[in-house]
């Protein structure tokens, strides 16, 4: 437990010392939401819809970059090898990273909520605000697994490039920036295979704006994807050893 707390403290300290790496992933979702959800003319109507999807977008950054690039860096420098030798449980390392990700996910989410509530005219029942927040926080899970796989597989340079592609791909193809219904049919078909798409739909169902599928279908899809990603992560982890 103590190891875990100290690990997390160290992760937080590291992140705050190199805040320039983190800042874009925190500021970008917020400014995108302010622009598309509130400021552009006619945006007011979409403030709720985009709150649900941009929330998922906001937690993706810390998850994919924190794990993808972070783990790849540490592996490159031999830090992971060293870690295996120290008397600390390996789960503390992953757990600390996960908690740090949740920390920054929440930090990215809260300004968006504030913009939605106080500038976008979004009004939700208290329970809905809380459920949406929890839903958005839980959305980090599949992205963290994806980030871990990238981190275990790629060199630090490759991880930066690849994380960006994955990040943007999941955002756009998953319909987090614009509803997929405005895309060509081919892209709409691709969306079904994106975890971001199903998480977006689940968040939409919480704010009573049902998407193309029923929440149970989305939940099933995301569960299957999470399991697959877990398998993939384990495989990548074993291989890199």
């Amino acid at each position: 437990m103590n190891a875990f707390i100290n690990e997390t403290g160290a992760e937080l300290l590291k992140a705050m010392r190199a805040i320039e790496f983190l800042l874009p992933t925190l500021v970008m979702p917020m400014s995108f939401y302010a622009l598309f959800g509130v400021m552009l003319s006619g945006a007011g109507k979409n403030a709720i819809y985009l709150l649900a999807t941009y929330g998922v977008f906001a937690v993706m950054g810390p998850s994919i970059f924190g794990f993808g690039v972070g783990v790849a860096n540490e592996r490159d420098r031999g830090w992971l090898q060293l870690k295996r030798a120290v008397p600390a449980p390996p789960l503390a390392y992953i757990g600390a990273k996960l908690l740090t990700t949740l920390f920054f996910a929440a930090t990215a989410l809260l300004p968006i909520y504030l913009i939605a509530g106080f500038f976008g005219g979004v009004e939700l029942a208290r329970g809905t605000w809380v459920s949406l927040f929890l839903m958005h926080l839980l959305s980090v899970i599949p992205f963290v697994l994806l980030g871990l796989t990238l981190g275990f597989t790629l060199s630090s340079g490759g991880a930066v490039a690849f994380s960006n592609i994955v990040f943007l791909g999941l955002s756009i193809l998953g319909g987090l920036w614009f509803p997929v219904t405005i895309f060509p049919v081919v892209m709409q078909k691709i969306a079904i295979f994106m975890p971001s798409y199903h998480l977006g739909e689940l968040a939409l169902s919480i704010v009573n704006a049902p998407g193309e599928h029923t929440p149970s279908t989305n939940l099933m899809a995301i569960t299957v994807m999470t399991l697959l990603l877990t398998g993939l992560t384990l495989f990548a982890w074993l291989r890199q050893r």
Binding site: A106, L110, F118, V122, R126, W129
Partner: peptide
């Protein structure tokens, strides 16, 4: 700090009139 901020944000967000 995060818990405090998150709680106060979630409590102060507007609910339907």
């Amino acid at each position: 700090v995060l818990t405090l901020v998150a709680t106060s944000v979630l409590v102060s967000l507007p609910t339907p009139k």
